[in-house]
Amino acid sequence: MDQPIVIEAIMGSQTDPTLAERLHDISHHGVVEVLFVEPADLPRRRFHSHTDRGTACFVSLPRATQLFDGAVLHLENDRAIILRVGQQNWLRLRPSDDGAMELGYLAGNLHWKVRFEEGCLMVALDRPVEEYRARLVDLQSAGKVSVVE
């Protein structure tokens, strides 16, 4: 069995000038592999996974360390591994004038991750959109919330 590459620290961002130069060089004479993580799994610090080239990795980061898109996880002469976060999808909800409080209460009660944008409540979709829409049926039928997109 292959031994997984152990990742115990983040070396920096792929946009750091020094690292960017190293990655550029490796991409010419070696391979830059990508480890994908879903947005909902970004807080994790200890897990097994495989890169897009099938390299086994064991991520074991200190608790104060936070993964991020573009994090450089591994560097050697002819191989690098960078982290890529999957696309975060959002559900855009527009409350009516008398629906905002109820929508805010619902989102909080369900522990949805949200942000605000131009009068809309943006809900991060960590699970299938149908699960979120099912919780909105009553507010929608009462005309208190509309799903913009």
């Binding site: 069995m1 292959d2 031994q3 997984p4 152990v6 200890r46 897990f47 097994h48 495989h50 086994a56 064991f58 074991s60």
Partner: peptide, 9 residues
Amino acid sequence: CAAVLYQAA
């Protein structure tokens, strides 16, 4: 063990 401990892949 497979989820969070180091072991051969």
